[in-house]
């Protein structure tokens, strides 16, 4: 069997064993369960599928999820770029600690982030207490969802843009300066086009993560149907009501959105690599 799939012979042992373990484990843990979801979805039939999805509550949840994810992705694209820029170009005290702290959302469990953000932005919280007198309610509104998704997505943009910014050659910027461009002009017309693929990749990664996010959102969202109810929560509600058909249909749609984004991310990364020859 090894001879059949191996393209180039190798004296190293263990190909059959490791490939066998890898494929068996991957199939048991990931592929077969995902296939079960697909089988369930196929069992619904075309009309059953759309009947489960095209209800006002489900459509509202999709609107809330996509809208807040998009908003959080855009905030992260702007501030993530700024943070990456400051980390790469400027020196300041505590630089290393700040750099390490950027990964906090990767390391902090989402439920912990969720209750911490809620405590901060609630009416009696440190930040909520400042904003609410100004008439800005964050916790238990869609705005709260945006805050949680911004927290979750930030490292994706910073960590995608940072290495590209680091490897940027100074020569083009020098040439722009010699030719009389101001810094802002140089940034907009020389630097930004060079890092655009990476920035778009980071944005898409953050957006994709935000679509599926559950833990950090449900505490701060208020979870009002039609207003601040996200799709992952709706899936859990359907499952708890044993409405497997509904959960399957919504879940399949979400999964298709995720795979479309995965494809987009792969294409963007190919673009980035082509641009930077790495």
């Amino acid at each position: 069997m090894t001879g059949l799939v191996l393209k180039r012979p190798s004296i190293l042992p263990g190909f059959g064993l490791t490939l066998g373990i890898t494929i068996a484990y991957l199939s048991l843990v990931v592929l077969i369960p995902l296939a079960a979801l697909a089988a369930n979805a196929a069992g619904l039939g075309w009309s059953g599928f759309w009947n489960a999805v095209l209800t006002p509550r489900v459509l509202a949840a999709f609107r809330v999820t996509f809208g807040t994810s998009l908003a959080a992705g855009l905030i992260n694209a702007v501030f993530g770029l700024l943070v990456a820029w400051v980390l790469v170009r400027y020196e300041f005290p505590g630089h290393r600690i700040v750099d390490a702290l950027v990964d906090l959302p990767f390391a902090l469990p989402t439920a912990v982030a969720g209750i911490a953000l809620t405590a901060l932005y609630a009416g009696n919280g440190w930040i909520g207490g400042l904003l609410e007198p100004m008439g800005l309610k964050v916790a238990f509104t869609p705005l709260g969802i945006v805050v949680a998704l911004t927290f979750v997505g930030l490292p994706f943009v910073v960590r995608t843009v940072q290495p590209v910014l680091q490897d940027l050659e100074a020569e083009q910027e020098e040439a722009a300066a010699v030719l009389g461009a101001g810094r802002l002009q140089t940034f907009l017309r020389v630097i930004l086009p060079a890092i655009l693929p990476a920035l778009l990749t980071g944005f898409t990664l953050a957006f994709a993560r935000a679509l599926g996010e559950y833990g950090s959102v449900i505490f701060i969202a208020g979870n009002l149907p039609m207003v601040s109810e996200i799709v992952p929560l709706l899936i859990i509600i359907k499952l708890e009501q044993f409405d497997y058909a509904g959960a399957t249909a919504i879940g399949t749609l979400m999964l298709m959105a995720s795979f479309a984004l995965l494809l987009a991310i792969n294409l963007l990364q190919r673009w980035t690599r082509a641009r930077h020859g790495g």
């Binding site: 180039r8 494929i23 369930n40 994709a208 992952p232 859990i236 399957t248 995720s258």
Partner: peptide, 30 residues
């Protein structure tokens, strides 16, 4: 090793990162 289907296998290994955690749990319930 160089083998047929290597890039597909690499993509499939990364797959769980693009699946919503809620769906990851749901597939086992289903």
């Amino acid at each position: 090793f160089e083998f047929t289907g290597k890039s597909l296998l690499t993509t499939l290994i990364d797959l769980p990162f693009s699946v919503s955690p809620v769906i990851s749990g749901m597939v086992y319930v289903l």
